[in-house]
Computed example of a mutant assay.
Amino acid sequence: MTRPLRDVVVHPDADVLAQATAARLLTALLDAQSHHRPVHVVLTGGTVGTRTLAEVAASPVRAAVDWTGVHLWWGDERFVPAGHADRNDTGAREALLDPLGDLLPAANVHAVPGPDAVATPEDAARAYAEELAAHAPAGGALPVLDVLLLGMGPDGHVASLFPGHPGLDVTGRTTTGVEGSPKPPPLRVSLTFEAIRSAREVWVVAAGAEKADAVAAALGDGPVTQVPAAGALGQERTLWLVDLAAAGTAVPAPADGLPASA
């Protein structure tokens, strides 16, 4: 089996990582809009993920993007009510959506339903799957996802797909409800690996020395059951964006400013 190629770019610290990822995302949006519309992007939460969105909002380049042609989705969500501080979309609204205001149509923001809208995480997963399918090409289950951003936990989880958890084995579906998450809150909704791997580009963003072991395991193709991030692969490109602390000793120092590959 051919080992999947991943591009790895190491930044000096988490602040620069967020700034560079924001610049990269804006460029990706502009490039995609030069070829097709709409553009679909899957967002992630977490400290660096939310900081990246704030950097997008702060960049003057944001004015070059036609936000009416951008649709935003989430790779996972905590099953708590709308507006709750634990929700990924709450942080995204504060960091990016509110600053964009009317530039981004409300209909282009696809939040995962919470317990104020549906009864269970599985109900939310079904509703989100239907929303995804409604924006898919005829007969498809998913829109063409141009960029799918993922954070990664110290245990190697991505989205809400945790080591040894049943969500890893879900097939034939684009979404899944998660119960008994080892990281609170325990109830969540997540894209499945089938949905993640459908994206044109998958970007895994990780910062901090506590992530170094998981980065090494994922880039070393550790088993997905133990390090789910190893299974996060894009159709056209898989990009790891990490800071120096998260890179640890797993990623060789790049030569002449070029990204390392793993």
Rank of each mutant, 00 (worst) to 15 (best):
V42R: 02
E130G: 06
V205N: 08
A217S: 11
A250K: 11
D15M: 08
V202T: 03
T192V: 05
V204W: 01
D89C: 11
V42K: 02
V109Q: 13
W240K: 13
H35V: 12
G222H: 04
D31M: 04
V41G: 03
V118T: 06
R37C: 06
P38Q: 10
F162C: 14
T176R: 02
F162H: 14
R78W: 05
D221A: 14
W203F: 02
Q226D: 15
D31F: 00
D7V: 14
S34A: 15
L241V: 08
A216Y: 01
G139R: 12
S160P: 12
A229L: 07
H135K: 07
Q226Y: 02
L233R: 14
N88Y: 13
I196C: 12
S160M: 09
P223Q: 11
L241A: 13
S261I: 04
T68Y: 00
G234W: 11
G177A: 11
G101E: 00
V170P: 01
G172S: 11
V9P: 01
W74R: 03
W73S: 08
P81Y: 04
H40G: 03
D146Q: 12
T120A: 06
L72S: 07
A134N: 03
A141E: 13
L29S: 10
P4L: 02
A95Q: 07
A85L: 07
P254C: 01
T50N: 01
P182K: 02
A217Q: 10
T225L: 07
A212P: 01
L219C: 07
T68I: 00
L187T: 06
A260V: 04
D86S: 15
K211C: 03
G180Y: 06
A57H: 07
G177S: 10
A82I: 07
T52C: 00
G46I: 01
G83S: 10
T44I: 00
R62T: 11
A246H: 01
A260Q: 00
P143D: 14
Y128F: 06
L100V: 03
D116N: 07
A22G: 13
L150H: 14
L191D: 04
T50L: 12
A111Q: 13
S198H: 13
H157K: 09
H71R: 11
D146V: 15
E236N: 15
P60N: 09
H40D: 15
A217T: 13
A92S: 15
D256N: 02
A260G: 09
L191P: 08
L168N: 15
R173C: 08
D221T: 06
L132G: 00
W73Q: 01
W240V: 11
R3S: 10
T171I: 05
A246E: 00
A57W: 08
A250E: 08
D146C: 10
A206I: 04
L96Y: 05
A250R: 12
V242Y: 09
V42Y: 00
W74S: 07
D102P: 09
D76A: 09
A245W: 03
L5R: 14
A141P: 09
T176W: 06
G140F: 06
A229S: 14
A206T: 02
L258G: 05
R51L: 07
A32F: 03
V8L: 11
D102V: 03
P38A: 05
G114S: 08
